[in-house]
């Protein structure tokens, strides 16, 4: 009981780190997603193919491989990275690939008639995208983006494996010190992730229903 109580502050700090990772990664992923997704929705086939290749690559390889590569691999190519930076970068690239699919999907789901009507008014390609298509597409992106954030929070637990002191790593450290608290500590961690993620995924489902 005592070592469980002692562990609480470190778990709370760990949860804080988990949030930092998730929010930083989400911000980068959204930015990446918009750039890649918009490019892909406009690109001619020849240009779209390599972009598709990049997206499929980062979606296809396991996140842990990516994370290990950035953390263990890059230094050997002469690039030093901190644990946190490597974790955030891996999460951002992985989620960015998913985000670009969300953005592209939302843009191409807007009926062609909208683009044609705007073009008939004399708007340019970029103005059409910015003033007509993206504002409508944003609504469709919102629910999957919220769900993506839950996925990032969940996936950020992998950062523990490159020694980032997130929620899971904080738990591991405590259990290492006193193996007998494993049960309450890991239960706490499970529940903490649930308490964070469940409302997020509920919100995503609600939005999905409301916006369609």
């Amino acid at each position: 009981m005592h070592s469980y109580l002692v562990a609480i502050p470190s778990l709370v700090r760990g949860l804080g780190t988990t949030f930092e990772l998730a929010i930083a990664a989400m911000a980068c992923a959204v930015a990446l997603g918009f750039v890649l997704g918009t490019l892909r929705s406009m690109a001619p086939r020849a240009l779209d193919l390599p972009l598709l290749g990049i997206v499929e690559f980062f979606r296809g390889i396991p996140l842990l491989v990516l994370m290990y590569f950035l953390f263990f691999g890059l230094p050997q190519l002469g690039l030093r990275t901190s644990n946190n930076a490597a974790a955030i970068a891996a999460l951002a690239v992985y989620a960015g690939a998913l985000a670009s699919e969300i953005v592209r999907g939302a843009i191409v789901s807007i009926p062609l008639g909208q683009t044609e009507a705007a073009a008939a008014l004399g708007l340019g390609r970029f103005a059409i995208l910015r003033l007509v298509v993206i504002p409508q597409a944003l609504r469709r992106m919102l629910p999957p983006f919220v769900a993506l954030f839950a996925l990032i929070v969940e996936s950020s637990s992998l950062a523990a494996l490159i020694d980032v002191t997130d929620l899971l790593q904080a738990a591991r450290q405590n259990v290492e010190r006193d193996p007998d608290v494993a049960l309450p500590i890991y239960l706490t961690v499970l529940v903490a992730y649930f308490v964070v993620n469940y409302p997020i995924s509920l919100a995503s489902q609600r939005l999905e229903k409301r916006l369609t």
């Binding site: 969940e154 637990s157 494993a182 049960l183 890991y186 995924s201």
Partner: peptide, 27 residues
């Protein structure tokens, strides 16, 4: 469904591997 969908699989694995054996009695 809601519980296991909304918690990280890695943490579930840790729970099963390291916490379950500490269950009083049957652990």
């Amino acid at each position: 469904t809601e519980f296991f969908r909304n918690t990280p699989p890695l943490v579930q694995i840790y729970f099963l591997a390291f916490a379950l054996p500490k269950l009083p009695g049957i652990g």
